[in-house]
């Protein structure tokens, strides 16, 4: 093919295109600034901001698995909340066994207990995800209405199994000694556990971005989100990739469940279903299938919930729904949609 036939050129995007693409990145700083102006007190704002970011990180951990599952597999998993609850109870079991470690003043032992609880919760929920995908999700690929019905059924069954194993009552989940209490920074009280949640959430976000953008598996996932059939036609068994991603998504829900349980300090079979409203809002705000959008959406939801809870408590419950409405009016497919609605 001769060069004379086609004369390609690369044009720089216009300023408006750059602003349009980058605008979602400014939402979190803008919301923080608005919060500072509305609250007035710097120390109160710092406390609320740390609480909001920590809450956002935990919602991100729970929502990231759901958005990737939806993006890659086109599966609307209303049973995702079951893995959040299951993870919390699995983590609770390990923390119960390691009572000496969590009561110890040693940070290393405390952290070791949390890491073991997290690892066990992710293992249990990952394996449960395997069974869930094989038994419940696999027969209804491509059938959204049936997916909603059967995954809701799976949620109910899992909640009942939790009743059978751990009983129907709420259980108090004590945080390890090192993560109780607060730091005082610039006159603001910041709970130690929230710092841990922010660190784990950030680490997960960075790790997920690295895996998705720098590895062949990530490349396959990103390609599969767009055109699974073509990935198969290139010779890759995408159904195995689906299963692996589903298991990882469930394991992330389990991680989120442990973190959320220690944050709330009580766990119940219904905790997953209760937090799923925020999780779905975050996934929709972020754009289906998008890790970056999910991260920004989770931060917005966490911050807004805390700011409005302080400023206008009666508005706190609906503030995130109003936020979702505003974002969808601006970007009907969410901030960074990977899966485009047709």
């Amino acid at each position: 093919m001769s060069n004379s036939l086609i004369k390609p050129r690369i044009e720089r995007p216009s300023l408006s295109q750059i602003i349009e693409a980058k605008a979602p990145l400014f939402l979190v700083p803008v919301l923080m600034l608005i919060g500072l102006l509305a609250i007035g007190s710097g120390s109160t704002w710092l406390t609320l901001t740390a609480a909001g970011l920590a809450m956002g990180m935990m919602i991100f951990i729970m929502a990231s698995g759901l958005t990737v599952i939806f993006g890659l597999m086109d599966v609307i998993n209303f049973g995702h909340g079951a893995f959040i609850s299951l993870g919390a109870f699995a983590g609770f079991t390990i923390l119960g066994l390691l009572g000496g470690w969590i009561e110890s003043p040693s940070i290393a032992l405390n952290l070791g207990a949390v890491l073991l609880a997290v690892a066990f919760a992710m293992l249990v929920t990952g394996l449960a995800g395997y069974g869930f995908e094989r038994l419940i999700v696999k027969p209804v690929y491509g059938q959204h209405l049936k997916q909603i019905l059967v995954t809701m059924g799976g949620l109910v069954v899992t909640q009942q199994l939790i009743y059978v194993i751990w009983g129907p009552d709420e259980i108090v989940l004590a945080r390890p000694a090192a993560f109780q209490g607060s730091f005082v920074v610039l006159g603001a009280a910041i709970e130690k556990y929230r710092v841990l949640a922010i660190v784990i959430g950030l680490a997960l976000f960075v790790a997920m971005r690295l895996v998705l953008n720098r590895t062949r598996i990530g490349l396959l996932v990103r390609a599969g989100v767009q055109n699974g059939e073509m990935v198969e036609a290139l010779g890759y068994p995408i159904k195995k990739l689906f299963l692996a991603v589903f298991m990882v998504g469930c394991a992330l829900a389990g991680l989120g469940g442990v973190m959320w349980g220690m944050y709330q300090e009580t766990i119940s079979a219904h905790m997953g279903a209760e937090v799923m409203i925020s999780v779905f809002i975050v996934v929709i705000i972020g754009g289906l299938g998008s890790i970056e959008g999910c991260f920004i959406g989770a931060m917005l939801v966490g911050l807004l919930t805390n700011y409005t809870g302080f400023l206008i408590p009666k508005l706190a419950l609906v503030s995130t729904i109003l936020l979702m409405g505003a974002v969808l009016m601006w970007r009907p497919q969410g901030l960074y949609p990977v899966v485009k609605a047709h």
Partner: peptide
């Protein structure tokens, strides 16, 4: 995938391009 691994390539009617991936990434896959 098993058929493709028999050294059969397929260029579909809609081209099957991964539009959010770069040209390089499309080729790498």
């Amino acid at each position: 995938p098993a058929i493709a691994q028999r050294e059969i390539a397929f260029v579909p009617e809609d081209m099957g391009i991964f539009s959010d991936l770069t040209v390089h990434e499309n080729m790498l896959l």
